[in-house]
Amino acid sequence: MTYDFLPSVAAPLARVIQEFHKLPGIGPKSAQRLAYYLIRMPADEAHSLAESILAVKEKVIFCGVCQNITEISPCYLCSHESRDRSRICVVEEPLDVLSLERTQSYKGLYHVLHGVISPASGIGPENLKIRELLERLKDNSVYEIILATNPSLEGESTAMYVHRLLSPLVSRVTRLARGLPVGSDLEYADEVTLSRALEGRQEV
């Protein structure tokens, strides 16, 4: 979308509208509204916004160990003394680390794959951070790998693929349990989930 044909829009404003329009979920109208809001914004806030955008591009890097998004490498989690170094939890995306951390019940390390195997979209194992995971296992200090990819078709294929690669290298490879989510309804449960929930039933 260009505003070249609209001389009534000041050039710097047109540019900012165009930039906003590139963001996901921002249509032409939202882009215009955001741009006009910027004009009324206090100068220091605008500076802070601009500076934070630059900072996120310049300072954020991938952790050399777990591949998570970080400011320092190795990242906070990888260098923390209280973490259990014999366990690595393999996840699809950086946001999954946050979700698992929120549970406060996992004290090991992570490994972020940055995607899943998705043959239909042309994403193969070579596009993920699997090689980096294999590197981490070389010193034999890892006892368990927990595969925490999504229970979707892509997540399952990735988990099975990684499992096949790792099983000769690690003594224990586990997969997150699949079952019924808290607050759900048996009526709507599918057969695969329900049969797995039955298999994984526990003493009350």
Binding site: P119, L153, S157, M160, Y161, D190, E191, V192
Partner: peptide, 22 residues
């Protein structure tokens, strides 16, 4: 769901063939 094809989903070789067929 009528057929979940669990044994296909849980075997990497079969799964890769099924994905290809789809």
């Amino acid at each position: 769901v009528l057929e979940g094809h669990r044994s296909v989903r849980e075997d990497l070789d079969r799964l890769s063939i099924a994905i290809y067929m789809m």
